[in-house]
Amino acid sequence: MLLEKLSNARAVSGREKEVRELLREEIKDNVDRLKTDVMGNLIAVKGPDKPGPRVMLAAHMDEVGLMISEITSDGLLKFKPVGGFDKRILVSKKVSIGEKNISGVIGAKAIHLQKKSERDKPLDYDNLYIDIGAKNKENAEKLVSPGDMAAFTTEFKKISSHRALGKAFDDRVGCSLLAELTEYSYDYPIYFVFTVQEEVGLRGAGQAAYWLKPDLALVLEGTSAADVPENKEFRYSTTLGKGPALTVRDRTIVVNKKLLQELIATAEEHDIPYQFRRTTAGGNDAGVINITGEGIPAAVISLPCRYIHSPVSLLDLTDYANMKKLVYNYLLAIKRKEF
C-alpha cells in the first residue's frame, strides 16, 4: 500500500525530496497540473477552471529527524534535533543519513562507564553521537557532511489484522490519504498541497495558501493518541480505533464552526465513527492557513497515532479507512453547498 512506501521514505524537515518525488510519481496521472513551489511544497490541482469553491487539502511531507552538526576527530557525528523530540528515545536507534543513505547508530557511553549521576538523567544531545563505522574524521567526511539529515529507519509492518507500525505516520498518513483522494473526480477546483517544514514551525503551508487563496482548507494530520496505561482517561488526547479525530481548537487555530458542523453531519449521515481531539496542545498547518490573507476557513481531521515523534508509531488501519471515507464524503457534499 501507498502508506507503506511513504512511511519508509525519508523526508526530515527541509529535505523532503524523496517523499515529494514519490508522491509526484504516484499522483501525476490523476491531476491536471503539478508544481513544486520555492519552499518545496508540492501543489497539484484538479479542475482549476471549474466554477465553485476553491478547496485546498493539505498534508505535510516532512518528519522529525536529526541534523549532523559536526564530525569529531574519531569520525563520530554530533547532531542537533530537527523538530520536537523526546531525547530519551534516541540512544541505540538506527538512522540513515543524507542522500547516500549512510547507515549509522546513535551511540552513547556504555552503561558500565557512566557515573551514577549520569545514569539517573536522560542522555542529552551532548552525550550522544551517531556512529557510521568510520575509522576517523577523514574517512567519515567522505560519506557525510555537516548539514546532512538523519532519519530513523523503521520499516512499515502490519502487526495484526488492523494495526500497523512504522515511522513518520505524522504526517505520511495525511500524504497517503491526499494522494488516494486524487483518484476521484470533483465538481470544483481542488488543490492537493503536500507541504514542507511543518515540524519546524509551520513554514511551508503559509506560502502555499497565500498563493492559492482558497475558499476553504482541510488539513489532514497524524495526531498523538495517549490511550495508554498510567494515563487517566480524561487526559487521552485521542483513542486508537475510535475513528478520525476532529479538532475544535488547538494552540494555533479555532476551527471554523461551519466546517466543523458539516464534518460532524457528514460523519453521522454516513455512520462513520469519529472522535474529538481532546486537548488543545499542539498545532499544525491549519493554524497558518487560517490567518493567511483576509483569513481562510480551515478545519483539521487527524488520524490517531500512538508514539508519534519517535522512531516507531502505531496506528489502526480501520481509522485510516474511516478517515478516508469521512474526507471523501465531505468533499462530495461540498458541491451542494454555497461558499
Partner: peptide
C-alpha cells in the same frame, strides 16, 4: 487572547 489572530487578517483586508 489566543494570539492576536483576528487583527492580522482584518488589517490585511
Amino acid at each position: 487572547e489566543v494570539g492576536t489572530r483576528g487583527a492580522g487578517t482584518a488589517a490585511y483586508g
